[in-house]
Write a protein that binds this DNA or RNA. Structure first.
Lengths: 346, 346
DNA sequence: TTGTAAGCGTTATCAG
DNA sequence: CTGATAACGCTTACAA
């Protein structure tokens, strides 16, 4: 904690506290001469205003809270990095919490943040409508809330996310272009985005008049370890590949599934892309270095973070929140084609 | 911001503010009956103590600051995740800042954190001795500081990091075990850890009586893009592999270099591990899914974070800081052997 | 141009 | 067991 206070400066300078305060804040009421003297002494003693006192007085904190499920996952870390940069730009402090995909921990995090007087809240909810009553209540009575990334949530505010349906649709199109029509799709069990992403898959099949084969939907259980996911995929893929209706492509709906399936396939001695083309969501830079390099659907994390912060600050600063037209903002992802979806040589 | 205050509760209850305060804090001076009444009304109005006022009064903030270079990199994100979990456990708030490897940004971050009254500071410095005067001064006069990860820094406090020299030494030993003695080592130009890691390399060669070949040290320039690093590695490796003294193994000293070199090698049609074995620092889970799966030196991020937080809190809570024996804490990394260092079949 | 005093929401001391 | 009062460090009418 900082040590020297206005009072002490005032005493040493034989001035009143208020004069010193005004001088340091460059008030027009104070003469240049005094400002000079005050500032000199202040910097000599390395005076730092006590933010607590200042904010208490002014009734502001300049804090905004963020809740995300796990910072450690590369995708979410990218978002946090971007959110943090944006918040620095706007002169707000970011207080971060992790929900670890638990409604209970999320609730605690919300309370902690509110207790710390955040002026606004960014949240990527633990799951669809988790803590919805609390969140709606806070939004109405306490501080504005903006949702990001996981925006499948029934609340009337800004929601910034990615157009999941369209992203998968376009990825499927890329597979069609190289002649693959038997597309297995890897989904996370109980993962929020699954629904929209599956919808895009179904829509693409329909538009291109390709029959839907329910056995192509592979649900993987995320509750286990990474090795658990791998062996789950292995079992299910093996079975499918040995059946009558072996697929010729795989579409991954989450970063984890997309990056890990390559390892599983190589273990099974499946040639990518010859036997099976692979594409899916993944924001990792390692995609380029994989063997074969991995075609990915990349989400615009920086853009998403920037917009989320900006919208939140709009809400915070606005006198009349009800006049602001809140809505959902869907960003496009980018498809990066690499070797895992290379055209068969014929 | 929270709305309802002690004063308002007091008025409605026809009590004094201090009684209400004590009741909510379960003071022994207050009767059960009143406590009951007070707490009921408080929860009815969703009363939340104003942390600002409370902390101002108590002279504490319960904030600790963290400075790290980039949150977005998987390795650092893992540390932040762990730091955050630990801080929640100890009931401290983490305020995070990124230095982006710039001394200037780091200085600003330090000032911001101090202004927010952090009670302690965790830092992984932008580079060796960056902002050293400021940091030493703060540590002596303002709040305790603990270094983590990048601990090559001339300051007298706890430093929690990994035993880089030993880690590389042991990785080299693994290569010796499979008969590889011509080991190229990938280093980051101007990367702090390079020195210690190179030292471990030299020491291993020496102890095993293997001649040191200076051309095996490959410096890669990090200032460019990832693609820049790749092409840099490509050029230098190609040259080396076509020379008289082609290496039979590669040792990566940073996560980026280790994970990306596999992509470069596959582009050059080098067989891993047959032509070239690969091992190096890397904390990513994707190592398992790479083709071939990648042998890695994994740093104990969670342990490092836990210890750093614990030591910092020790310093914060101690009445007599000079009595605490501060020192460097070097953790061991774990070697995970996978296919990229499989024994040649002979 | 400077100073006085009140108050932000708490907690702690002390008196009743 | 309860209440009045002061104080934490700062800003800001308002007074001088």
């Amino acid at each position: 904690m900082s040590k020297v206070t206005l009072k002490e400066l005032a005493r040493e300078l034989n001035m009143s506290v208020s004069t010193v305060s005004k001088a340091l804040n460059d008030s027009y009421e104070i003469s240049e001469a005094t400002k000079q003297r005050v500032k000199e002494l202040a910097s000599k003693y390395n005076y730092r205003p006590n933010a607590l006192a200042k904010n208490l007085k002014l009734g502001r904190t300049n804090n905004i809270g963020v809740i995300i499920s796990t910072i450690g996952s590369p995708f979410q870390a990218q978002i946090i990095e971007a959110l943090h940069r944006a918040s620095v730009r706007f002169d707000f402090n970011l207080i971060m919490m992790q929900s670890q995909d638990s409604e209970e921990i999320e609730r605690k995090a919300l309370n902690t943040l509110i207790n710390h007087g955040v002026e606004g809240l960014l949240i990527s909810p633990a799951f669809e409508n988790s803590n919805i009553d609390l969140l709606s209540h806070l939004h109405k009575t306490t501080c504005p809330i903006v949702l990001f990334d996981r925006i499948n949530y029934n609340i009337d505010t800004f929601k910034v996310g990615v157009n999941n349906e369209k992203s998968i649709y376009r990825a499927a199109e890329e597979l069609f272009k190289i002649g693959r029509k038997k597309i297995a799709i890897l989904c996370g069990k109980n993962i929020g985005v699954t629904k929209d992403r599956l919808k895009g898959y179904r829509k693409a099949l329909e538009d291109y008049h390709i029959d839907f084969n329910p056995s192509y939907i592979i649900y993987c259980d995320y509750n286990n370890s990474l090795e658990g996911i791998d062996s789950d995929m292995e079992t299910k893929l093996t079975q499918l590949l040995h059946s009558e209706q072996a697929p010729d492509a795989v579409l991954g709906t989450t970063d984890t599934l997309t990056t890990r399936v390559l390892g599983v396939l190589s273990k099974l001695n499946i040639q990518v892309p010859e036997d099976l083309a692979v594409i899916g969501f993944a924001n990792t830079d390692i995609a380029e270095s994989l063997n074969p390099s991995l075609s990915t659907i990349r989400q615009p994390t920086f853009e998403m973070a920037d917009i989320a912060i900006e919208k939140l600050i709009n809400l915070i600063e606005s006198k009349n929140r009800s006049q602001i037209d809140v809505h959902e903002i869907l960003l496009d992802s980018t498809i990066q084609l690499r070797k895992s979806t290379k055209q068969k040589l014929s």
